[in-house]
Amino acid sequence: MSQTADEKARSETPEHDREIGHDEFDPIGTLTLIGIYFLILVFLWFFMYFVEFLGNDPTVVGGTLVFAATGERLR
């Protein structure tokens, strides 16, 4: 956890510091957080598919979709 100036010590946060209406609220924190989540998802997906799954040979091959696409069974 980084030490930024606006991270201040608050053992007890008052219920309502201020009222924030619809137009003045920009959920930038949400965007940041969910952006991080997005990156994690993309990384993990590639990791799972190309490392865990394709590295888990042998795999069932030679099927109808390939046949339709290429006209021959892949060997």
């Binding site: 956890m1 100036a5 991270e7 201040k8 010590a9």
Partner: peptide, 19 residues
């Protein structure tokens, strides 16, 4: 340790200012 360490005076005023 990080959580329980009493904050330095300097730091506290700094954060108070940014508020």
């Amino acid at each position: 340790v990080w959580a329980l360490w009493p904050q330095s005076q300097n730091n506290a005023t700094e954060s108070a200012e940014t508020e």
